[in-house]
Simulated assay, not measured.
Amino acid sequence: MTTDDVLQVTDSGEGAGVRTLTLNRPQAYNALTVELKERLLTALREAAGDDGVRAVVLTGAGKAFCAGQDLKEHVGLLQSGDDAPLRTVADHYNPLIETITGMAKPVIAGVNGPAAGAGAALAYASDLRIAAGSANFLMAFANVGLGPDSGASWTLQRLVGHGRAQELMMLARTVDSTEALRIGLVGEVVADDELAGRVHEVALKLAAGPTVAYAKIKSTLATAAESTLSEALAAEDAAQTELGGTADHAEAVDAFVNKRKPVFTGK
């Protein structure tokens, strides 16, 4: 386990394969400073490259998931003449979203409270979203005269549809957990005090599963979202051909034949 001022990185014991990344600026609703963005990007890349990590949880400390960009730091840097805020989309947000969506293992967002702007977009980019009852989501870019970033223009409409995504972005309307579940923004809502346990339960299940197959599910869905039917069929064919030669597939077949529970190794 590694702990610092802005991010906590925790591995489940006994080789469970779950790594939890906790945004740790609760006094600022886990708003994203340059330091936190850089630490999170490093931690995500390390998790992606670590064969011992088979599922990643992203959550927040305190009462919020993530309030998005830290506007105090943002304004302060601009007023000082530092152009770093103008580069943060390219330097931080784009790589964060690309790392989450491109990671060859599942990422679960445990949305423990309000998620806004880039913070909400981190949840949208994750593979699964489990929310606490107190969670809510807000795309408030229009309120400050900006368009969406952090991949929200791509991810949000794929979760809730083009029309709904446009409404939420233009009206900057807060979506509570009940509505989020109804419109498909999250997959599950649980009581606040049950969130951590439920997220960990799901993460353990995924970590014990066929990780290489999960990676292909992610990649084929991404391909299909931007391709013709013929291209999607070709991608599925290539994935199934590759997966058919994996140890996990052989294990699953043997387990089925012998009426036992398979033990996957992610290979």
Rank of each mutant, 00 (worst) to 15 (best):
N94P: 00
F141I: 00
L171R: 14
E98P: 00
A67L: 06
K105Q: 09
L86R: 14
A118V: 13
A118I: 10
L58H: 05
K63D: 13
G68V: 03
L128P: 00
G76C: 05
D176H: 13
V144I: 15
A165K: 01
A152M: 11
N143K: 08
C66F: 02
G60K: 02
A64T: 12
L159F: 07
A125Q: 05
Q69V: 15
A115M: 06
A104G: 07
P106M: 00
A90P: 06
L171M: 12
G187F: 11
V160W: 14
T174R: 15
G102M: 07
E167Q: 13
R158K: 10
Y124N: 09
A123I: 04
T178N: 11
R164M: 14
Q166V: 15
P148A: 12
W154R: 07
P114W: 05
K105E: 09
V186Q: 03
G133H: 10
A115I: 08
D149W: 02
L128E: 08
V111S: 04
R164P: 03
E73P: 00
V107R: 10
P85V: 05
M139W: 07
N94E: 12
G110M: 07
D127M: 02
P106C: 00
R173E: 14
T155L: 10
L168F: 13
D83W: 09
R182M: 08
M170Q: 15
V89R: 03
A64N: 10
V160G: 09
M170N: 15
A135R: 09
A123H: 01
G110A: 15
A132E: 02
P85Q: 04
L128M: 08
T101K: 13
N136C: 05
P85D: 04
